[in-house]
């Protein structure tokens, strides 16, 4: 399993958790979910997708138009089980890092509601 995922990939995989997306939607979701910190343009998006596809974390799931945009047939992508596992592993790693920070009082403990 890979050591760590670059933020762009993490967000891409995360955006696909809820189901398949096409490229443009992925762009928008990533921008929104990262609070604007990770911005993917078409070029960089496809560069990342290409690698994710090559590693088997993501797979193409057919082409069809998006009713909200226009009649053009767009490629859709979805998460593979391997992708889901990689995502979970990465999230867990982040969690471990956060707990370490909390233990050393870098971050305050969450107030239990």
């Amino acid at each position: 399993m890979p050591d760590n995922l670059p933020p762009a990939w993490y967000h891409l995989l995360l955006a696909l958790v809820e189901g398949e997306r096409h490229g443009y939607a992925l762009m928008q979701d990533v921008a929104e979910e990262s609070g604007g910190r990770v911005r993917l343009g078409p070029g960089t998006l496809y560069g990342a997708l290409k690698r994710l596809l090559a590693l088997g974390l993501v797979v193409e799931s057919g082409r069809r138009p998006d009713p909200l945009l226009d009649d053009e047939r767009r490629r859709y992508y979805r998460l593979t089980p391997a992708g889901r596992k990689a995502l979970a592993a990465e999230a867990a790693r982040h969690l471990r890092l956060v707990e370490l920070a909390r233990a050393k009082r870098v971050l305050s403990r969450p107030r239990t509601a």
Binding site: H22, G23, M27, G41, L45
Partner: peptide, 12 residues
């Protein structure tokens, strides 16, 4: 990826 890239580009 060419054709899809173009679509996204156009959308954006």
């Amino acid at each position: 990826f060419g054709d899809d890239l173009r679509l996204i580009f156009r959308d954006a």
